[in-house]
Amino acid sequence: MITQKLTISNAQGFHMRPASVFSAAMGKYPCKVTINFNGNSYNAKSTLNLIAACMKCGSEIELVCDGENENGAMAEAVQLIESGFGE
């Protein structure tokens, strides 16, 4: 299991499009991907979970990847969040 702390940097936060893009990207990996935010855990492969988490620009989150190819998942997740989902 690996974890990393990150800050959401795109202006609108995890709204519909970033949430779809992110969950679809994470869905490709066999490992479990979880986001810990505000005392709750969210399934990062689920668009609906990500929207429900209400993560905004500036929100600090903890990303957890656990299982097969967890390093690959983490690398892509970090890249997506840091690039602001190409917005």
């Binding site: 499009r17 969950s23 869905g27 492969k45 689920s46 668009t47 979970n49």
Partner: peptide, 16 residues
């Protein structure tokens, strides 16, 4: 059109 396609990603949501 994109909003409609968003509905597909909801209904295919693995958690849901």
């Amino acid at each position: 059109a994109e909003i409609m396609l968003g509905h597909i990603s909801i209904v295919k949501d693995p958690y849901l």
